[in-house]
Write a protein that binds this DNA or RNA. Structure first.
Lengths: 181, 181
DNA sequence: TACGATACGGAGACCCCCGCCGTTTAGCAA
DNA sequence: TTGCTAAACGGCGGGGGTCTCCGTATCGTA
């Protein structure tokens, strides 16, 4: 990779992060190019489509969450371990503008990319779910949990305090909105 | 309302319904105008903004759900009554393309319109929630339930059988993903 | 230093949203 | 039936976005 390409890549990533934080997952690529001071062709060369850009922007965040999950494998209390992680994921999804939509989008694409955000989170979270299987409702999968979390994050995007609201909804779902009598 | 205006309104509504079923809540207004064989100004006159169009298109569906709720007020088993209604809402939100996004959008706008879709569903569902309060987790509101449902519907939009998947997730949330030990 | 590969910038084609305004037409009244 | 007027229509123009493509500038090496 040429030096100028590297510079532009880094610059674009930084600008994209700001712009997405400001305007959500469908921020204008054109605008990002303008702010970064490069031609629109350049952003498109580094990131062929919006999905690629989102993946790059959120890569670190996702990686952090995955590490968080791995740390919790083998903990003495599997239920607590899983719930802590789910809370962390929820907080990120609700706080980091655009992340929830990005996760939702690549669930749609059907995980053809093993290394997409949802794929990574699935892989990292699966052991936690397996460990906690005994205390989970039968049939619950890591995919279910991630779908629910992205859904909750999308639905609470507007709220004054999205993270708090999202976590509250998640807690309700975990313990049961209306447990059987 | 003039006769030609009435004709165009009806025609636009029909075309919009198809187009939204095909392309989701952000179908092209321009395209709708083309298919309906009217100028783009006409669609904009009848529906000043996208939200107005969505509201009109989904009005009947929402009204049906509200009636469904009113039917169930006063039933002997309040829990069953509420859950049946929640399932119905979930099925609609997951099946009718664009509805979930529309509901989500007007939760965002903050219900300044009392008669918007979410507002109507809130009003209709509130008695069911009140009735069932004794068997609900403390603090659960009708707004929470609707938010959760729209979130679930958004998250399962891609699934081969969205309604089944959405209802499954809802059931899990109702009985608890991992009820406390 | 010269050269080839690589990356850059932006023009062009296409689509969409939105506001505006000249023209047509429905429906009423004479 | 015939005029008339307000309401409704259609589409143009401006602004912006996406995506493709190609001539040009630049980097890194021989």
């Amino acid at each position: 990779m040429r030096a100028d390409a590297q510079r532009n890549y880094a610059r674009l990533l930084a600008v994209a992060e700001e712009e997405i934080a400001l305007n959500g997952a469908d921020a204008s690529l054109e605008q990002i190019a303008r702010v970064a001071g490069v031609g629109s062709g350049t952003v498109r060369r580094h990131f062929p489509n919006r999905h690629a850009l989102l993946a790059a922007v959120f890569r670190d965040h996702v990686e952090t969450l995955c590490a968080h999950a791995r740390d919790r494998v083998g903990r003495p209390d599997p239920r607590a371990a899983l719930l802590e992680w789910l809370n962390a994921v929820t907080t990120s999804a609700a706080t980091i503008r655009g992340l929830a939509m990005a996760l939702n989008r690549d669930q749609v694409t059907g995980d053809e990319h093993e290394h997409c955000a949802t794929g990574q989170l699935t892989e990292a979270g699966e052991p936690l779910v397996r460990q906690a299987a005994a205390v989970l409702a039968p049939g619950v999968t890591i995919a279910d949990l991630l779908a629910l979390i992205t859904g909750i994050a999308l639905a609470t995007e507007h709220h004054p305090d999205p993270a708090a609201e999202a976590n509250r909804l998640l807690s309700l779902a975990v313990t049961g909105l209306s447990p059987a009598p």
